[in-house]
């Protein structure tokens, strides 16, 4: 049963990502991407990482894709058709990617993966404890760094995006930290 679901998910992921890359309609592309990300979330659920799957759904599929669609709607007409890329470019990029993928997969198949036999620790409790543990094996510091990153990016985005024409105008709009 799980096996079949996995194959279905894989097929969805691969075909939709290919379509997303090839489609000439911008908005469709974004919708395909949404499909891919949702399927990946499904995969996370399948593998048993429910929290990660939920995050993938909310942040990625729910947040990022919405942001992208939003920006498409802001900057393009709905039925905008993109021109097809030149042949030479497609050929070079295609050859490069196919060669890369083949080499990569062969290498992966040739590698001996040894499983470490220990009891699995993936419930939400362990996850939370590891994430906020300041001691050995804990991820508190990265957590803090990510929060700084979010803050910095927010400042950056606001500074770039905010309209400004004159001093008086902008001092009222001011909303950075």
């Amino acid at each position: 049963m799980e096996k079949i679901i996995f194959y279905i998910l894989s097929a969805v992921i691969l075909s939709l990502s290919l379509m997303s890359v090839l489609s000439r309609k911008l908005l469709r592309s974004a919708v395909y991407l949404f499909g891919v990300l949702t399927a990946i979330a499904g995969f996370y659920f399948l593998i048993g990482y429910h929290f990660l799957g939920a995050v993938q759904l909310t942040v990625y599929a729910g947040g990022i894709v919405v942001l992208i669609i939003f920006s498409i709607l802001l900057t393009h007409e709905i039925d905008h058709q993109m021109p097809t890329p030149e042949w030479s470019r497609v050929a070079v990029a295609g050859a490069l990617c196919v060669a890369g993928a083949v080499m990569f997969i062969q290498l992966l198949q040739g590698s001996l993966f040894s499983r470490v036999e220990v009891p699995e620790q993936s419930d939400l409790n362990t996850l939370g404890n590891t994430l906020l543990n300041p001691g050995g094996g804990g991820y508190l510091l990265p957590f803090e760094v990510v929060s700084i990153l979010l803050l910095a990016v927010m400042i950056g985005a606001i500074v770039i995006a905010k309209q400004r024409h004159s001093v008086d105008n902008s001092s009222q709009e001011k909303q950075a930290p």
Partner: peptide
């Protein structure tokens, strides 16, 4: 998937 992404990035 990764290489499909690379292809898209390039084309």
């Amino acid at each position: 998937m990764f290489f499909i992404g690379v292809y898209g990035f390039l084309t």
